[in-house]
Every structure is written in structure tokens, then in C-alpha cells.
Design a protein around this nucleic acid. Structure first.
Lengths: 339, 339
DNA sequence: GTCGCGACCGTGAGCGCTAACATTTCCTCG
DNA sequence: CGAGGAAATGTTAGCGCTCACGGTCGCGAC
């Protein structure tokens, strides 16, 4: 029942077979120069014959270039997180890096040691997708311990945005939240309410900005967690109030919860109530009715985060941001208030 | 711009500090017996003082117990995949394993070498989430190369279910697909159509089984890919046909696409058309109207896959399946046909 | 011819850890 | 009170690879 089997073929086996030294084999598998074409071919043939595969552990241990990233996050099932992870993975694969993933429990408390334990070794490169307190904590712990090998996305609620560009990749959701709010106001709504997700303070700030600009007294923020059910519940009160005509939601899932609640309360959308989400998840366009929301390029952010990390590790020219800016996508859950 | 810094503290540094040999430190960090309590405490103190973290690469290289799994999959954003991954990660973390993730491109062709390259070393344990051709191919390649260190979920379209229980974790979606179909028939529908996702042949088979049992001639299957948009498009024809009163969909996303198409075609649900999904994704319960679907315990399957893998690596008693069986969840997109 | 200097290739050491064995310590018991 | 043995610790040899060198060879310049 064991997976033992014969010892896997090593660089020495290949060397022997090709009649060269192990070092020459190493040069070949690393595409190093200073190897004669004929030799290279011979080694490659031996590699193929023997089915040799380099051992990553040995490679990292021997102190070659770094070839792996660890991604720290809480929930890989959430759209934003999943897409970001996907973006990181894409970029990492292109660069020949392998990706480790470490999921944290949002309900637990982690010591610095707990966080460090998740890295394959001390100082190993990491990307933190910081959409909540727990990951934001991990971000800070790693920031202190190994600033040279850390990049993060999110973590807006920590402020300190001044010095962030060289280790954080952020979407400007504050500005777009303000834009979305202004859009609702421009449709004739006298007030815009906000259903907030934990951690995304910047969206709330943007909303707040726009209301302040318009001279409107900010209503109390309604808080939810990340689940649709919680959102539906939290929204029940808002939705029952006929004076509430527009709700900006922290993300699409919350918006779906609100729409559900609105439906149950017998309020029509967008006639009685306008709802705007955040994320533009795949379902938004196909919901009935299609959801007005904000397109966020999570995948681009993931790629960007990896590019930045690699830049920090290996130097080279500054990687320029390559993700789309957030954009409001108006569909059918928003419109002028009735009357 | 480099992440160099001082050399991380090693087991020898700790040993020196605690006044013991490095091997004793190794015993302590591995919770091995044969260490005096006092010594153990002294070593632990030294570890804490120095902030020592074991190096996983060195550990695996030195041939200790295996402590990592690589997950091969195509799309980490899909609900089923994301949940399965999550289940694997949960179980792996509990067991002290680290999780590597390797995303494959469903549109590419992979040689066996391409697949092997994704493992950190030859013979490294892997779990394949095989929901399409590409991952099913990877599954087969690894199956041949290292049967002792491979577990898979999915891959139903390969048949050969006979010998699978010891390396494959499968949900019985065939049976439940039949049950769902019978349910629709029992509501009075004369015919049930099927919108299929690629690769999930077993769902189609179950549907087919039920129709055959009922003596109904099986209508042509409509095929879609995994995207909601494609489903909406593919469903347009079905939905336009008033004789179509019930559609069983390959997953929830497809069902949402069908609902969207039905709405655009002006057909009411469930009055004119019953729609049943597969997966019970979080949104299903909150869709308007709430979606009738099949609850699939992907997370449990992920855990089960990991448990099985660990069993294969380390022996011990057979892990018994710990996931819920698929179950039909009737909500509001299904009912008797009108008239 | 011989020096020099590339291009090419090999040797040795060591990354941080564990397995296997060797050694010491200390307690038990006849 | 010494033999025996278990408990506790130390020593050595690698795991597979890369780095930093050190050699060797061939060839043009003087």
C-alpha cells in the first residue's frame, strides 16, 4: 500500500547515461550557455530516455533562483478571490513558478508564527489576498518579517495607502464607488443606502464621498458578512422601508441577496428599488433582471501582483499595471425612482 | 531590490543555542519520542527565541514523510472545482500537508511530460479534479506513471468504474440525475430535456436511464460549455419551443442561463417551464425564483480525496467515505406543467 | 612555438534536513 | 555493586541539486 517504487532518476543518472558530468546536465536543464550543441542534444536525449524530472525541493534547497509563491487567502470559493488566484496562477505558470495555496480560517486568530508556518521556508515569497481581518493580519506580519518577498492585494482598511504601490496591488474601488453613487443620484434618487461587506472600507468611503459632495446626510451603513443569506437578512429592513429607493452593495452576492429580499417584500426592481453590485461576477449579466454592477479586473490584479513580486525578487524594470480600471456597468436593476 | 537578507536560522543554530545536537532539534520539531521533557522545553525555547522555521524543501529532500499534494485542475473559479479544492485544502492543512495548485488550460493539449512537469518531483502525490478532457488526460497519465500517489475526482466519461474506488472519489450523480428526471416526470411532464455540460456523462446517463424506464424516447441532448452565456444561447432554441416543459441542466450556471433565456422568451417559470440545476451553488437558493437543484457535497469529496490519498501514502485503515450523497432540493423553478 | 584567452566541462562543497546507527547516561535488578 | 538494558543524545551519511571554482582544450596572436 506504499508508494515507494524504485528511486526516481536523478541528475547523476542522466549524466552517466549521456557521458557527461552532473553539472553539465544541470546547465542543460537550466538553459545555461557554455554547453556545446552536440552535448546539449546528447543530454536532452538522455533526459528523455530516462524520463528524468528535476526535483524542485533539491533546487530550492541548493539555493538556485526562487521558483515558487505561496498565496495566503481565506475563501477560494468567492468570486473575487478565485479570480485573483487564477490570475496569479496564470502569471506564475508563465514564469515557471509553482503556486502553493494556504487557506486561512476567517474565524480564527493567528499568531505571527502561525502565519510563518504556512510558508515552505523562512523568507519564501508570498502573496496575500487580503479581503478580511485575518488575511490583513497575515499581510502585516509578513510585511514586517520579509518585506522583500511579499505582495498583497486588498487590505484597504489598514489605510497607509501612501507607501503602498511597491508592495500592494490595489483596484481603485473608492473612486468607482463614488461614481456609482453619483450615477444613482443622477437618476433622481434622493438618497443612496449602502450594504457593506467587512473589510472593503474603500467602497464605503467612495460612497460616502459622493454623498458628501452632493450635500446629503449619510444614512447608517448596513453591515453583512460575505454570504448571500446574511445579506438577504440584513437587507430585509432596508427593503421594507418604502423611502429607500437605491442601495449600493459591497459585492454582487450581497446584491443578489438584496434582490431576493426585495422580491419577497414585493418591491419591484428597478421600479421601486435600484440595486447596484460590485464585482461583475459571471452571473450578474444573466440574472433576472441583469444586475447593474462594477466590473473589477481581479484576474488582472492577480497577474499584477505576481509581476510585482517577481520584480521585487529579481529586479528589472518596474512592471507597469496591466489591469483594467474598475468601471460601472449599467444593466437593468437600476433606474430612476418611480414618480 | 533583492530579498537576500541574512541567512535564515537553521536547525544547527537552534541546536547550538539549546546546547544539543541538531538531531535532537529534529526530534523535537517532529514530535518524536525519546526526548527528555527538560531538553524538549529547552529546544522549544531556543526555537521561539530565534524564530526558527523548518524548511520544507530540506525536509522532503531528506526523505522524511511526504507533506505535500499537488492539485491539478482547469478552472478554480467554477463552483464545484473551488469547493473541491477547498475541501482538499482543509483536510491537507489538518494533516500538515501543503497544497500546490496547478491550473491547466482546457484548450491546450498536454503531453505526459507536460503533466509530470507540474509535480514538484517525480512521484509526488497528486489529486486531479477531472471535470474535462484535459484533466482526465492528466489523470490517466499519472495513473500510469505513479498509481500509488494519485487520487482523482470526476473523470466519469472514461468509464472503467469497476476498479476505481481505491483511487477515485466519485459522487453518484447518475442516480440522482435519474431521480431528478423521475421527479419531473412525476409532476406530469411528458418529456424532460437535457442541457449537458462537457465531461459529465454520468448525469446524462442518469437522465437517460430514467427516461428509458418510463418508456419515453430520449430527445436530443443539447450541449453547452461551462459558461452561462453559452448556456443561454444553447437554450434559446429549447426555450422557444412551447412543447418543451422541463429541462434538466448539467449544473446551476447552465440553469441560470436557461432561466435567463426563458425570461427573454417570455416563458414563465415554473408555469410554462420547469428548470432543474445541479450543484446547489450558493446562489441557487436566492435566485428569483429559487432554483430547484441537486445538492452535491464537493467539499466533502475534496476531503475524501485527500483522505484517500493519505491512506495510499501512509497505509492505515481504509478511510470510509465522509461526504453527503447527492440529494434533490426542490425549490421554485419546478412544478407541474400548466393545464 | 608559446602564450593567452575564450569556450567548454568537471570537481568539490554545501543547502537544511532526516534515517540509521553509534554512543553515552542512568536506572533497575539480581 | 556490577551487568544489563532502556532512555536519551550524538555522529555520520546522504537526499538532488546549484554555486564557485578549477581544469582542459583549441586556436589565433605574437
Amino acid at each position: 500500500m506504499s508508494a515507494a517504487g524504485p528511486r526516481p532518476v536523478s541528475i547523476f543518472d542522466v549524466a552517466k547515461r549521456a557521458g557527461v558530468s552532473h553539472q553539465t546536465v544541470s546547465r542543460v536543464i537550466n538553459d545555461a550557455p557554455m554547453v556545446a550543441a552536440a552535448t546539449r542534444a546528447r543530454v536532452k536525449a538522455a533526459i528523455a530516455d530516462l524520463g528524468y524530472r528535476p526535483n524542485r525541493s533539491a533546487r530550492t534547497l541548493a539555493g538556485g533562483a526562487v521558483r515558487s509563491v505561496t498565496v495566503l487567502t481565506t475563501d477560494t470559493s468567492l468570486y473575487g478571490t478565485a479570480e485573483t488566484l487564477r490570475g496569479i496562477e496564470d502569471a506564475a505558470r508563465d514564469a515557471g513558478f509553482s503556486v502553493l495555496i494556504s487557506v486561512m480560517d476567517p474565524a480564527r486568530v493567528y499568531s505571527e508564527a502561525d502565519v510563518l508556518e504556512r510558508l515552505p521556508h523562512d523568507g519564501a515569497p508570498a502573496i496575500v489576498i487580503a479581503h478580511d481581518e485575518v488575511t490583513a493580519g497575515a499581510m502585516q506580519a509578513l510585511r514586517e518579517r520579509q518585506p522583500g518577498a511579499l505582495v498583497a492585494t486588498g487590505g484597504e482598511h489598514l489605510g497607509a495607502e501612501h507607501d503602498s504601490a511597491d508592495w500592494r496591488v490595489l483596484l481603485d474601488d473608492r473612486t468607482v464607488a463614488a461614481r456609482a453613487t453619483r450615477y444613482l443620484l443622477s437618476m433622481g434618487h434622493k438618497q443612496v443606502h449602502h450594504l457593506a461587506i467587512p473589510g472593503k472600507a474603500s467602497r464605503q468611503t467612495g460612497w460616502s464621498d459622493a454623498l458628501a459632495d452632493a450635500g446629503i446626510t449619510r444614512p447608517e451603513v448596513v453591515h453583512s458578512d460575505w454570504s448571500i443569506g446574511a445579506a438577504a437578512e440584513a437587507a430585509a429592513v432596508l427593503v421594507a422601508d418604502p423611502s429607500v429607493t437605491a442601495i449600493l452593495c459591497g459585492n454582487d452576492d450581497l446584491a443578489f441577496g438584496v434582490l431576493h429580499a426585495a422580491h419577497r417584500a414585493g418591491r419591484s426592481v428597478p421600479g421601486d428599488l435600484s440595486v447596484v453590485g460590485f464585482d461583475d461576477s459571471p452571473l450578474a449579466a444573466y440574472h433576472v433582471p441583469p444586475l447593474t454592477t462594477v466590473d473589477l479586473d481581479f484576474r488582472g490584479v492577480g497577474r499584477g501582483a505576481f509581476d510585482l513580486l517577481r520584480h521585487k525578487l529579481e529586479g528589472g524594470p518596474d512592471p507597469r499595471p496591466s489591469w483594467r480600471s474598475p468601471e460601472l456597468v449599467v444593466r437593468e436593476t437600476s433606474g430612476p425612482p418611480r414618480q
